[in-house]
Write a protein that binds this DNA or RNA. Sequence first.
DNA 1: CTCACAGTTGCAAGCGCTTCCAAAACCGTG
DNA 2: CACGGTTTTGGAAGCGCTTGCAACTGTGAG
Lengths: 343, 343
Amino acid sequence: MPGIKDVAERAGLSVATVSRALSGKGNVSPRSKERARTAAAELGFVVSYQASSLASGRNHNVGLVVPSVHRWFFSSVVEGVSATLLDAGYDLTLYNVSEGRERRHSVLNDFLLRKRVDAVIAVSLELSEAEIDQLLAIHRPIVGIGGPLPGASTIRIDDSGIAEAAARHLIQLGHSKIAHMTGDAAYEQDFRLPGTRQAGFKKAMRDAGLALRPEWQVSADFTIQGAYANARKLLGSSPERPTAVFAASDEMAIGTILAARDFGLRVPQDLSVIGIDGHELGEVFGLTTFDQDARGQGALAVRRLLARFDGAGDTAAAHTEYPTRFVIRSSTAVPPLEQGPIR
Amino acid sequence: MPGIKDVAERAGLSVATVSRALSGKGNVSPRSKERARTAAAELGFVVSYQASSLASGRNHNVGLVVPSVHRWFFSSVVEGVSATLLDAGYDLTLYNVSEGRERRHSVLNDFLLRKRVDAVIAVSLELSEAEIDQLLAIHRPIVGIGGPLPGASTIRIDDSGIAEAAARHLIQLGHSKIAHMTGDAAYEQDFRLPGTRQAGFKKAMRDAGLALRPEWQVSADFTIQGAYANARKLLGSSPERPTAVFAASDEMAIGTILAARDFGLRVPQDLSVIGIDGHELGEVFGLTTFDQDARGQGALAVRRLLARFDGAGDTAAAHTEYPTRFVIRSSTAVPPLEQGPIR
DNA sequence: CTCACAGTTGCAAGCGCTTCCAAAACCGTG
DNA sequence: CACGGTTTTGGAAGCGCTTGCAACTGTGAG
């Protein structure tokens, strides 16, 4: 395995000049630069980031902390981050902290602090103040996606806004018996998303003068199967059935649609369902949803960091509201005709 | 940020002894070890893997190369690998090479060769001989999951065997009009899975003396939505419908079930469907399948590597056949009564 | 009491780079 | 042609750790 020394020798230059030539830092005559480059290419030389980082402090590596790798949003972000990073020649160190607090704690402590990463992207993590301080203490850029992260830059969609818009969409279609499937309390603790979206829903309902029936406020774990199970309860046991369900994620919306089918309910004729995400399966189910381009959010986070690395050193924490797109498909429609007493 | 020097000072030991005490290599008296440990703990010291790896050649970092992070099998493997690695104090560098050959090429070349990783886990990648040579040339342990990887250790399930068993299950129920949904040719190139499973299917059919109708051999991209689209064609256009479908993955089986429902076909009364995977959604759809514990495969791969690192230096390439579990749910049953001419 | 030996320890030489610093080479002017 | 200023270059000092080596300690046997 060739080292920079070999390159220097072959190019007839000093190690220092080769280093500068290949990294692009410092002044090097075009001629030397060219020489160094060809010599490196001929030898198949590629710098050791280990050594490079020891000497320079830069790692060419960013850490991505996600709470799961299975759920749509997270894997989409991972994809976007990964692709953008790879293109830029950076490594991606993945920290999947799905298994509870100790895992998370050890990741933050033992891993990120080892200075192995130049920056951290934290997805939908609700961190304690101590944890945030810890992160900020390593003096590396941090960007949070899909969740608040005081002190760091964040990229997020207008959760409460689109939740409100989703609910309003149903209301405008004529629905008044609207159920909401939100995230489990357990998730609220970690992500805080559910609450924000729920707030938007409630606002829309209140603004329309509609009642919030507690038995129509259900929750699940953000998965299709979890939502399916709970939607069955919602649709099966209620003395009166809602005519529409607003699910806080597409996966939960899909679970709801599957449950509805089990009861012979047609979507949208008997039940309207709307979600949030832009999940690939949305098409299959004709799901009306707000498309938040998760992949794009991941890519944006990386671009942000890269800009920072390149010295466009805007150290100030910037908060970006990522745009969403309302996609109307066939899972929402006007409510069925009232079957009860003539109104 | 404290260095090993600070620890040495505080413990009243030399840097060398502290290094040995903390790494567990070489002889250190219990007393010194204890001292070094407490000093390190008090200072919150944690070795810099950068420096450590420069000096020792060991990275505490393994590279995981996956063709996608969205599909069930891959994200499950990622999860297993990640958890096991984190527990062992190793970092995971993720290389998602979903976007074609150049990406893959650059990953192999520029990234893995930088010696940033102690080992490589390659999931379901069909590599060219040159690529394999390249990988082997870096003299790091490699383990392949779910695909052949000549020269490296592999962990895989008995693809053709369970495919055969799946088909036999249908045959034994009395089916003879069995369709097979395999992977796209595009995937065959990369993963070779489809072919192996297809071979098992064909064998079972041949052994039972059943005909393989070309129009019942369909393929998709291993996703629910892809399978859904193609299953619609299969079930909608055939002059004669199959009574059972064997899908090469659970995701494709689910897509098939969704398509069947669209046509008013009841599963399993009108159509039996069987898959392979053990996908979380299997429960929701009552899917009969072979559970291959993908998470477990990832974990096993890591344990294998860790053992190697610890000097249980069995350098020989070992091939493990990972066990699967046949899970019978409600998507398979005896075929419907023949509707055609009296037999 | 001495010797051989195994168990401990510290010194110092790197690991492969980056970067500070000073020297060398170059440039256009006066 | 000499001069100051600007590039370009190479020497060498690290970055924070590991590890070969030699020196040292303590032990039980002779």
